[in-house]
Nucleic acid binder design. Structure first.
Length: 110
DNA sequence: GTGCTGACTGCAG
DNA sequence: ACTGCAGCCAGCA
């Protein structure tokens, strides 16, 4: 704590900026933060994001558009429900038109 | 203080 | 095309 890991904070900041009806990947966030190889840590940050209601973790999926983290929500279907409620169609734990719904912070935030 | 695990990803075999 | 391994950061035993 004394060193204050900005990593989590930065991850939350980016996730909060994800537009409604859009999704991104752990790797995209990690790369935006300058740590492309720390994608795992990004996912770990999402695990801790449960305490933060302003962090839409459901909009963060893996690079294949697969809801790998859905199992960490209150219910296995919670993540999909939240996404579909925002206009993101999910089929078989996979985001439809992922390439279209994909939101890249590197390009969007620039 | 040391070591393992995890919501990932890319390269090598 | 499929499987396996290594790298990154933070939390817990």
């Amino acid at each position: 704590m004394s060193q204050q890991s900005h990593f989590f904070e930065d991850v939350y900041e980016v996730v909060k900026l994800i537009p409604k009806g859009r999704v991104t990947s752990y790797g995209a966030i990690a790369k935006y933060l300058g740590a492309a190889k720390s994608s795992r840590t990004v996912g770990y940050a999402m695990n801790a994001a449960h305490s933060l209601p302003d962090v839409p973790a459901q909009r963060v999926v893996n690079r294949n558009g697969l809801l790998t983290g859905k199992h960490h929500f209150a219910t296995p279907t919670r993540m999909q429900e939240l996404l579909e409620a925002e206009g993101v169609i999910v089929k078989n734990d996979q985001v439809i038109d992922f390439d279209v719904k994909f939101w890249d912070p590197m390009k969007e935030l620039l």
